[in-house]
């Protein structure tokens, strides 16, 4: 038995080549398996959506039945009053007029916060010692309740769009910053060592190893923080404003119009939800990431 040397060994390696085409009976088995699988998935999806719809209807019915019986209507309003308020705001244009200010502050704040975070995290993520120096101050700044700073921001930046943008950026900045630093720091030591021994220059190392390895972390943070930007903008509008969805809610609250508060909160929730769904593809952009584990925020 002369197995084992030279070309023979390579022949053994061919076992891993693509499988031969299956016979007719096997093809039928494969097709049936696929069909059954697809049917199962369809059924499962339908069940999930029906359950979701059921919960929505259940909550609205419970709300309707309890309002004025278990709880005073003054506190919780009624579904039809909220719906009526939404229709009214839509028809008289309030929704769009106020919405544009909130969305503008959200988007600009998001961009500014994310960009500043990435530009600051980049050098700090690559310089562990500099990061150690900066870390306590960054954590300190992160620990400040942004809402408490709101009035000061108004004092510094006026009543217009600027303080809202800054609050929105503030809510985005830290999550993106911390994730980007983590992205730069989590690059497996082995990948870096192997690349260095292979002859990578510092620039090549950054371009081919460190940056691609960090990108999924940054994208996950960008995906998770868009809703936070909107919360920041709305907080700003709550503190001092005469326009925006946050103003709409706070104005209704000051008149004890519960239906207005709930309607405004509902609109904001729907916008945040829509933005989150819209950004979902940003978390997993490329084929190589399938099967690669990237820890990310809760959204």
């Amino acid at each position: 038995m002369g197995l084992g040397n030279g070309a023979r060994v390579t022949a053994v390696g061919e076992r891993i080549a693509l499988p031969r085409p299956p016979a007719d009976a096997a093809v039928r088995v494969l097709e049936d398996t696929l069909t059954r699988r697809q049917a199962t998935l369809r059924a499962r999806r339908r069940t999930v959506w029906l359950a979701r719809l059921g919960i929505l209807v259940g909550v609205i019915v419970a709300w309707e039945l309890s309002s004025g019986t278990l709880v005073r209507t003054f506190f919780v309003s009624r579904p039809e009053a909220v719906a009526a308020r939404l229709v009214e705001w839509t028809l008289n244009g309030d929704l769009f007029w106020h919405g544009q200010f909130t969305l503008t502050a959200t988007f600009i704040g998001y961009m500014v916060g994310a960009l500043a975070a990435i530009l600051l995290a980049w050098p700090l993520g690559l310089m562990p010692r500099a990061y150690r120096v900066a870390e306590p101050y960054i954590l300190l700044a992160y620990s400040i309740p942004a809402v408490a700073l709101g009035p000061v921001f108004i004092l510094w930046f006026g009543l217009e769009l600027l303080p809202k943008i800054i609050l929105a950026a503030y809510f985005v900045f830290f999550v993106v910053f911390i994730n980007t630093v983590a992205g730069f720091r989590q690059v497996p030591r082995g990948l870096i060592d192997v690349s260095l021994v292979m002859g990578a220059s510092r620039a090549a190392l950054f371009r081919t190893v460190i940056l691609p390895s960090a990108v999924p972390y940054v994208l996950a943070a960008l995906r998770a923080t868009l809703p936070a930007a909107m919360i920041g903008a709305v907080v700003g509008e709550f503190i001092a404003s005469n326009r925006g969805l946050g103003y709409l809610a706070s104005a209704a609250a000051s008149e004890y119009e519960t239906d207005g508060v709930i309607a405004a909160a509902f609109v904001m929730a729907v916008i945040v939800l829509a933005l989150t769904v819209l950004l979902r593809p940003l978390g997993r952009v490329t084929r190589w990431q399938r099967g690669v584990d990237v820890s990310e925020g809760s959204l």
Binding site: P188, G190, L191, D193, V194, S195, V197, M198, G199, A200, S201, A204, T208, V209, P212, S213, T286, W288, Q289, V292
Partner: peptide, 26 residues
């Protein structure tokens, strides 16, 4: 040349891209 215990391939590069990596650096 250093072949480590973990394969240490770049997950975002195809097989041929990984095999070419050292030549690229050089």
């Amino acid at each position: 040349g250093y072949i480590t215990q973990d394969d240490n391939l770049l997950p975002w590069r195809s097989l041929v891209g990984n095999v070419e990596l050292g030549l690229e650096f050089r």
